[in-house]
Design a protein around this nucleic acid. Structure first.
Length: 602
RNA sequence: GCUCCCGUAGCUCAGUGGAUAGAGCGUCGGUCUCCGGAACCGAGUGCGUAGGUUCGAUUCCUACCGGGAGCACCA
């Protein structure tokens, strides 16, 4: 039994014998006192006050009296309503460091709490390259999958690539008309960017067409909704794009050939982007393969009276119970919409892969959509509808405001990493520290630093909230940043290498008594609990915060004490090396949960 | 108009209803004959407003103010 579990059990017993109140050990909540001088761990007696019918202060006094003298407890005191406990450190060090220096502490939940998770994330459209919004999605989906896997769940990472629809037809049309036969091969341009160029071309040509259309009609000022709708109905370009979509849906061979060719360009580009970001998937689905699936679900729902047909011919799902207007599921012309496809998609997913829970990593602007989707699935009688979760994350804004593709203010994912790598390379070369490293290794370190900078920057903020992406701040390597954490790790690895020791924790630790050492011990001891909490809250940012706190705690220790230089007692050096190596292992684990690489040298 | 989310330090963000609300950046001032200074320490300023629940509220509830998003036969 671990030191913490033992302590919880003693407290549980003391409550039982002292007040005849039952609190299971796993519900004994141990916290850190605000000041280490009070003790190592604290137990707040407030929640017991009611059941014990006693003031928290009295409960603390009584518990302190009963715990006095337990082996391994060096001090027990009641400070007001708190029970503060000081532990015998040597055995605690041995347990905690031994755990980190072996396989790492047990993070997995009890078997009965483990689940099969499907995590769907990324889900890009294949008409243009990925931008900062996708980057947040990719990082969050990846980190969430890692986190759930770390606590023992079985995780399947799923990507659904939206490779069909009107948006691709716009890129296709522009490429046909103005692409001049450009290909990734004959231009050297990355495929997704090349296709994106055509999409941009389409948008600007369409804007020009609308301007001309308005001029012909003598319309001035900003377009009203009605005018805009009228233009869209009459637009030659949009009409041509729609014709392409119809031809695609009819299976036109020429259209499919072009579509396949351009999609392949994009997908090849995406593969590079994903690799560079350290993102991968267990299953990749393509919208083009499953887009028809939803229709039969809707027809069955119609037959069973869950849905109804409107006079115009459209099929809708009534939603009075949510206080909402009926949701259209099939247009009056019989074609499917987004919701229809998502219905089919969910049903297919459940049939094909099965799951205890499925998590959709999608921006907060689609909260309404998912609420309605889950509700309709429930109405269709799928009991697993209650096991679907929309992991809703906030938007990424820039110092200049919201990203707008129309105004060209989107931050491209590849450009972003290019710039970060450039900045990291500059710093690395200016520092001249690693001039001895071969170029290939320097290149790799530069990539790892850049990735750490952007990943940590994005992952350290609460996913639910909108966030500000400040390019200036993101290339900073000091302070609460990914590179700072990598650096702390690399320093530790360097120390361990230089020590010539290979600590495994199988030793005594009676010489580690400095406050900074004890702080590290406590941080390491409580780390597994924090990870489980982060997983339960679906919050990778919590892992980022805890990992940073550990690194800062280490820096404080390292600044105050020598590890082996000027340490006369070789036993103290060996004990400190073991401590430091355990911190290194924990930093690596924390960064790994965030998908951030941990180079041995920087 | 209706619904949802967010207002914590100059800026960007932490903070399971409990002890003196914390970090980073920026500003100012320090440390170290430093094993990797991308470090460490100190100073300074803060819970949008008003009520309510509670022994106790930054945290829960209500209203208001401010910001954002959503409410398509778009995705």
């Amino acid at each position: 039994m671990s030191v913490l579990d033992q302590l919880a059990q003693w407290i549980s017993q003391a409550i039982e014998t002292g007040f005849s109140v039952t609190v299971p050990p796993e519900e004994v909540q141990l916290d850190l006192p605000p000041d280490a001088a009070l003790g190592d761990l604290a137990f707040g007696c407030f929640p017991l006050a009611k059941a014990c019918r006693r003031a928290p202060q009295q409960i603390a006094l009584e518990l302190a009296r009963r715990l006095e003298g337990h082996p391994g407890l060096v001090a027990v005191r009641a400070d007001g309503p708190y029970l503060n406990l000081s532990l015998e450190k040597s055995a605690w060090f041995a347990e905690v460091l031994g755990g980190w220096l072996a396989a790492g502490p047990e993070l997995a939940l009890p078997a009965e709490q483990r689940r099969r998770y499907l995590v769907e994330f990324s889900c890009p459209n294949t008409n243009k390259p990925q931008h900062l919004g996708h980057v947040r999605n990719n990082f969050l989906g990846d980190a969430l999958s890692r986190l759930l896997g770390a606590v023992g769940h079985e995780v399947t990472r799923v990507n659904l690539i939206n490779d069909r629809g009107i948006h691709i037809c716009k890129s296709m049309l522009a490429w046909q008309r103005w692409g001049e036969g450009r290909t990734p091969e004959n231009t050297g341009r990355k495929g997704d960017h090349l296709v994106g160029d055509s999409y941009v071309e389409f948008a600007s040509r369409l804007a020009a067409e609308e301007a001309a259309w308005r001029q012909d009609r003598g319309l001035a000022g900003p377009a009203t909704e009605v005018e805009h709708a009228k233009f869209e109905a009459q637009s030659e370009l949009l009409g041509a794009a729609r014709l392409l979509l119809q031809a695609w849906e009819a299976g036109d061979e020429g259209v499919h050939a072009l579509w396949r060719r351009m999609n392949d360009w994009v997908l090849a580009g995406y593969r590079e982007t994903y690799t560079r970001q350290g993102i991968d998937f267990d299953r990749v689905f393509y919208e083009s393969e499953i887009w028809k699936l939803g229709r039969s679900e809707v027809e069955e729902g119609l037959a069973r009276g869950v849905f109804r047909r409107e006079p115009g011919g459209a099929v809708v799902c009534p939603l009075e119970e949510l206080g909402l207007e009926p949701k259209i599921l099939l247009r009056s012309d019989g074609t499917a919409i987004y919701m229809t496809q998502d219905l089919g998609n969910a049903v297919m997913r459940h049939r094909q892969l099965g799951f205890d829970a499925m998590i959709y990593v999608v921006g907060s602007e689609q909260e309404h959509h998912f609420r309605v989707l889950f509700h309709i699935l429930g109405k269709l009688g799928y009991d697993w509808a209650g096991r679907l979760t929309h992991f809703s994350y906030g938007m990424v804004n820039l110092p200049s405001g919201r990203m707008k593709s129309r105004e060209g203010t989107v931050v491209d994912a590849d450009d972003l990493l290019d710039e970060l790598e450039l900045a990291c390379r500059r710093v690395l070369e200016e520092s001249q520290k690693r001039s001895d490293l071969p170029d290939a290794q320097k290149d790799e370190i530069v990539c790892q630093l850049a990735l750490a900078a952007v990943k940590y920057f994005v992952l350290k903020v609460n996913p639910r909230l909108d966030m500000l992406y400040d390019p200036e701040e993101s290339i900073d390597l000091a302070g609460n940043t990914g590179p700072y954490l990598q650096y702390a790790h690399a320093r530790i690895r360097s120390l361990v290498r230089k020590s010539g020791l290979e600590p495994d924790g199988q030793q005594s630790f009676e010489l580690l008594v400095e406050p900074e050492e004890v702080e590290l011990l406590k941080t390491l001891a409580l780390w597994p609990r924090e990870v489980r909490l982060a997983a339960a809250q679906l919050n990778p940012a919590r892992v980022a915060q805890r990992t940073y706190e550990l690194a800062r705690c280490f820096s404080r220790f390292f600044n105050a004490h020598s590890v082996f230089d000027r340490v006369d007692d070789p036993r103290l050096a060996a004990q400190r090396i073991a401590l430091v190596a355990a911190v290194g292992a924990a930093l690596r684990r924390g960064l790994d949960l965030l998908g951030i690489p941990t180079p041995e040298r920087i």
